[in-house]
Simulated assay, not measured.
Amino acid sequence: MSAFAALEGGLDPGLLDHCGLCHTRAQMKVTKSALTTGAALLALTASSSCKEPEPDKFGTVRIELSPLGGEGDTVFAGTTEVIATVNYEDCLQDFYLIDRTDYQKDGPEGAPVFDQFAETLCTDYDEAPECEVDSIDQTLLEGTDVYNLKVTFTITDPSSLSYRELNIGPLPTEDLAGCSPIVELNVNGLIGRDANGTQIWGISTLPGSSRATTNQGAPLRVTLARK
């Protein structure tokens, strides 16, 4: 309506303009309120539909370090490095070489997993000795029967080794692997070295069973003797 028409109709043009402005503001408030409500409902719906975090897909096997005769000070004195190697059995060979090659150490899914375990093997487990992870290496040589996982630990306090547990990983859980993820520890699979890189101790006696699965209930208890 024009100002002239408003005058003819007995309405004050200023009043009309003011009413129009109020109406526009009211519409904006309604629109803003509707958008805010819609956003809140969308956020609530998204929140209610979020799934619980999946359980950890990877774990470790544990090796308990038992010095021969209980003489930890003698066996472990001077230790600066421990190297633990476990061999993949059929399930894990198929997992890494056939089913999920992306989880190999250098794979797109595997690389961050290996990096994470390098940071946590010495810090996130109650029975771990005073150590740091120097490296985690994976060997998958088809046709040579060499399929293993090797963890090299730097030992910052050798007196902390007696009856403590080394965690060896990452290893996929049974749910992820789709089979029983078994590794085997051989007699040459655990050695200690001094600052010169010389081996000063190794396995004297393996347990009755030297095979273990991911997140096993009990550690592999090995007896270690000075070289």
Results as ranks from 00 to 15, higher is better:
residue 1 M to S: 12
residue 2 S to H: 09
residue 2 S to I: 02
residue 4 F to K: 05
residue 7 L to A: 12
residue 9 G to Y: 14
residue 10 G to H: 04
residue 10 G to M: 08
residue 13 P to Q: 09
residue 13 P to A: 06
residue 14 G to L: 09
residue 14 G to D: 15
residue 24 T to G: 13
residue 28 M to N: 11
residue 30 V to F: 09
residue 35 L to D: 10
residue 35 L to G: 11
residue 37 T to F: 12
residue 37 T to S: 12
residue 40 A to S: 11
residue 40 A to L: 14
residue 40 A to R: 07
residue 44 L to A: 13
residue 45 T to W: 11
residue 46 A to H: 10
residue 47 S to T: 14
residue 49 S to D: 10
residue 54 E to G: 13
residue 56 D to K: 10
residue 57 K to S: 12
residue 58 F to H: 02
residue 59 G to L: 00
residue 60 T to D: 05
residue 61 V to Q: 01
residue 62 R to V: 01
residue 65 L to R: 03
residue 66 S to M: 05
residue 67 P to I: 01
residue 69 G to C: 02
residue 70 G to A: 07
residue 71 E to Q: 13
residue 71 E to P: 00
residue 72 G to S: 04
residue 73 D to R: 10
residue 78 G to W: 03
residue 80 T to G: 03
residue 80 T to S: 07
residue 81 E to H: 07
residue 81 E to D: 07
residue 82 V to H: 01
residue 82 V to D: 00
residue 84 A to P: 01
residue 85 T to R: 15
residue 87 N to P: 13
residue 87 N to F: 11
residue 88 Y to Q: 08
residue 94 D to L: 15
residue 94 D to Q: 15
residue 95 F to T: 06
residue 99 D to F: 12
residue 104 Q to H: 15
residue 104 Q to M: 15
residue 104 Q to I: 12
residue 105 K to C: 05
residue 106 D to S: 14
residue 106 D to G: 09
residue 109 E to K: 15
residue 111 A to R: 12
residue 114 F to L: 02
residue 115 D to F: 08
residue 116 Q to G: 14
residue 117 F to L: 02
residue 117 F to H: 00
residue 119 E to Q: 12
residue 119 E to A: 13
residue 122 C to K: 00
residue 123 T to W: 12
residue 123 T to K: 15
residue 125 Y to M: 11
residue 126 D to A: 15
residue 131 C to S: 00
residue 131 C to A: 03
residue 132 E to K: 08
residue 132 E to T: 07
residue 132 E to N: 08
residue 136 I to N: 02
residue 136 I to F: 04
residue 138 Q to W: 11
residue 138 Q to G: 13
residue 140 L to V: 09
residue 141 L to R: 13
residue 143 G to Q: 03
residue 148 N to M: 10
residue 153 F to M: 05
residue 154 T to K: 08
residue 154 T to R: 05
residue 156 T to V: 03
residue 158 P to M: 05
residue 158 P to N: 11
residue 161 L to Y: 07
residue 165 E to H: 13
residue 170 P to H: 03
residue 173 T to R: 04
residue 174 E to G: 06
residue 176 L to S: 05
residue 176 L to T: 04
residue 177 A to V: 06
residue 177 A to R: 03
residue 177 A to Y: 07
residue 178 G to W: 12
residue 179 C to N: 00
residue 181 P to R: 08
residue 182 I to H: 07
residue 183 V to S: 04
residue 184 E to N: 10
residue 184 E to G: 15
residue 187 V to D: 07
residue 189 G to W: 06
residue 189 G to H: 02
residue 189 G to K: 08
residue 192 G to S: 01
residue 196 N to P: 08
residue 197 G to I: 01
residue 202 G to D: 04
residue 203 I to R: 02
residue 203 I to W: 01
residue 205 T to N: 00
residue 206 L to T: 04
residue 207 P to A: 03
residue 207 P to T: 00
residue 207 P to F: 02
residue 208 G to K: 06
residue 213 T to S: 10
residue 218 A to Q: 12
residue 225 A to L: 04
